[in-house]
């Protein structure tokens, strides 16, 4: 959806705030990555159309993109109250239950959705993932397919991923630097698209595009901060989260990002970042 379409939808909504055009606008904004704006549009629409299950479904999808899983769950549960058997809500709840470790419930929701739509390959793939997770419950956290959830959501939404696959050499650009360890490097351009590298989970999903889109915004924020703090240009950002350590640095017009499990020492993550930067710069300059 191009910006002109979004503008047209915005104008249509401004002309008639009681219309349901906000459903298209919210979805268009969400797909364009303007998640917060999409959320505002959808929640305002919800105030006027709280009895329409499509609105709750839209809010739920956006809530997932925002990382607000509690809200997403509430909204999809409301969808099932308003439209029992709604396949999208069952898929979504399946995903959320999976994310929260409620594997039996996830399996139940996805199984019900698959019964309603037996030909839906994304559903059978998601159900396979859940069943594999049940089997793999005893494996190490990093190896568990929890990290595959955003990909599961992507698969649930549409067969076409928002980011096209990169050429094989670009995807494997950092393979030599990273080795076989469960760590990842991504080169992201100024628009948040993956240029090189990948982030493949234990069950084979490449989450590079999702990760890049989410984390490239941090570098924009850093650039703004640098303009006002008088510390010169930013060279590196490192942060630790519950599941991973992330390091990023400016590279060309974009940013290079390295993620590793928390078990990897932070100093080593920095080293990986530096080595990956060298590799990326060589690739950007000479194409090799």
């Amino acid at each position: 959806m191009v910006t002109d379409d979004i503008r047209a939808l915005s104008e249509a909504l401004a002309a008639d705030p009681s219309s349901t055009v906000f459903l298209q606008l919210g979805e268009a904004l969400r797909r364009q990555g303007q998640v917060e704006l999409a959320y505002r549009v959808a929640t305002r629409g919800l105030e006027r159309h709280s009895q329409r299950f499509e609105v709750h479904d839209l809010v739920a999808r956006i809530a997932v993109d925002r990382g607000d899983f509690a809200r997403a769950r509430t909204e999809w549960e409301t969808v099932l109250l308003l439209a029992p058997g709604h396949s999208g809500a069952q898929k979504g709840l399946g995903f959320l239950c999976f994310q929260q470790g409620e594997l039996a419930a996830a399996s139940r929701y996805l199984g019900a959705a698959l019964e309603a739509s037996p030909g839906d390959q994304s559903l059978s793939a998601a159900l396979d993932t859940v069943r594999a997770a049940i089997a793999d419950e005893q494996r190490a956290p990093w190896e568990r397919p929890t990290a595959a959830l955003p990909a599961t959501v992507g698969a649930l939404e549409s067969p076409a991923r928002p980011f096209a696959a990169q050429p094989a050499d670009a995807r494997t650009l950092f393979a030599e630097v990273l080795g076989d360890a469960p760590q990842a490097a991504l080169l992201i351009d100024a628009d948040g698209y993956v240029m090189a590298g990948d982030y493949v989970t234990a069950d084979g999903h490449d989450l590079g595009a999702d990760l890049g889109a989410q984390l490239s915004g941090v570098s924009d924020e850093a650039s703004r901060a640098m303009r006002h703090l008088g510390l010169g240009k930013w060279k590196q950002i490192v942060f630790e989260s519950e599941a991973a350590s992330v390091a990023m640095a400016p590279c060309g017009e974009g940013v290079l990002l390295v993620a590793a499990p928390r078990t990897v020492p932070l100093g080593f993550v920095r080293r990986l970042l530096e080595r990956s930067l060298d590799r990326a710069r060589r690739w950007l300059e000479s194409g090799t």
Binding site: K233, I237, S241
Partner: peptide
């Protein structure tokens, strides 16, 4: 949103 959970320590290194 990326599925990594809440952030603990954060560091920005500048020139």
């Amino acid at each position: 949103a990326a599925g990594f959970g809440m952030t603990g320590f954060f560091e920005l290194v500048a020139e």
